[in-house]
């Protein structure tokens, strides 16, 4: 086991996979940083430091710094993948899927099925998502539910450095397009990471991060830590929460959620994306339709409101789910009837 930061887990996994498989290539804006400047290549790496050192180790043909052209970045990733490579493309901010949506949605996500199962598109699209930095409406969004709604894409949300390692390796070796969503606020988080060079975490297997009998809390990413904090606090009062880290929203580990709710009879989904047509609503519906008989209270969700993300500190914190809101929702579930 090694201690490393979430961002170090990203770059070390990419480096290990690049060393292992010459078909793995990296592309994105400023992934080298400093190209065409007096400071020269790698003067500064990407803004998240998630590609540091790759250019020096693997060279310009495998670490491709791109112009600001998200549509072309995603399209080129698809083309590389269709032609036998394993691109790991970075979109910097998840919000920039807006610029490249056709390439994600109508192109890479559809090839395998639309071409009668005869093609593979093993591309990984990495991007930083999430609020908390007062970066306002176009640099703070959680986009997993939009992408989870698109057939053909796999969607991964790692919460710990170990999960980054295991899930990113799986993503790179996977033969389908994988969206890999890294929460900005987690990049600096440190944790134990297995040394095994083949350590992989299969998609569709959620992680139980807290165990309890009374309430099932389903979450992922930054908010998982909020849920854990609430579970720990309530545990002291004798209230037990299962906290389920989804890890992947496509495929979704329905079994883990249903098994837990069958015991607890109460579901709370905590998610950073807005409430309409959402992952939170989807999971509530899943439980209502498949575990109805176990329910002791109506499924609940804590999400931001249905608005763009506001800038000011007071507004952003009021907008976001908080431990207080999560705790109140758990207590509401317990007080039902």
């Amino acid at each position: 086991m090694a201690q490393m930061m979430y961002r170090e887990a990203v770059v070390s996994t990419i480096a290990e996979e690049m060393a292992r498989d010459p078909n793995v290539v990296v592309l994105g804006e400023d992934v080298v940083g400093g190209m065409g400047t007096p400071g020269g290549p790698e003067a500064i790496g990407g803004i998240w430091s998630t590609s540091t050192g790759l250019f020096g180790q693997f060279g310009k043909d495998r670490v491709i710094d791109t112009p600001i052209s998200e549509s072309a970045i995603v399209g080129a990733a698809s083309g590389l993948a269709l032609a036998g490579k394993r691109p790991v493309a970075e979109l910097m901010f998840a919000d920039f899927i807006g610029v490249s949506l056709d390439q994600i949605w109508n192109q890479m996500g559809k090839f395998r099925y639309m071409f009668g199962g005869k093609s593979k598109c093993p591309a990984v699209l990495r991007m930083a998502y999430g609020a908390g930095y007062n970066a306002a409406a176009q640099h703070s969004q959680s986009v997993h539910q939009i992408l989870t709604g698109m057939p053909g894409l796999k969607v991964v949300i790692p919460t710990t450095p170990a999960d980054v390692k295991g899930l990113l390796r799986t993503a790179i070796r996977d033969d389908d397009p994988v969206i890999f969503l890294e929460h900005k606020a987690l990049y600096g988080v440190t944790g134990e990471v297995p040394d095994d060079p083949d350590f992989m975490i299969p998609f569709g297997h959620a992680r139980l991060s807290r165990a309890g009998q009374d309430v099932t809390i389903v979450s992922s990413g930054l908010l998982l830590g909020f849920c854990e904090a609430v579970a720990d606090k309530l545990a002291a009062e004798g209230i037990g929460c299962d906290v389920i880290d989804l890890r992947t929203t496509s495929p979704l580990d329905e079994e883990a959620i249903l098994d837990s709710v069958e015991v607890t009879g109460r579901l709370l989904v905590v998610d950073e994306a807005p409430p309409r047509c959402s992952l939170a609503g989807d999971i509530c519906a899943l439980v209502a339709s498949k575990a109805f008989a176990s329910l002791k209270a109506p499924p609940q969700a804590v999400t931001p409101p249905h608005t763009p993300i506001p800038f000011a500190r007071e507004l952003e914190s009021a907008y976001l789910p908080s431990t207080d809101k999560i705790e109140a929702a758990v207590r509401k579930l317990l007080a039902w009837r």
């Binding site: 400093g34 190209m35 400047t37």
Partner: peptide, 12 residues
């Protein structure tokens, strides 16, 4: 001459 950390010489 710069877009973020990249030079116009490279990107244009």
């Amino acid at each position: 001459h710069y877009s973020e950390h990249t030079g116009v010489e490279y990107a244009v």
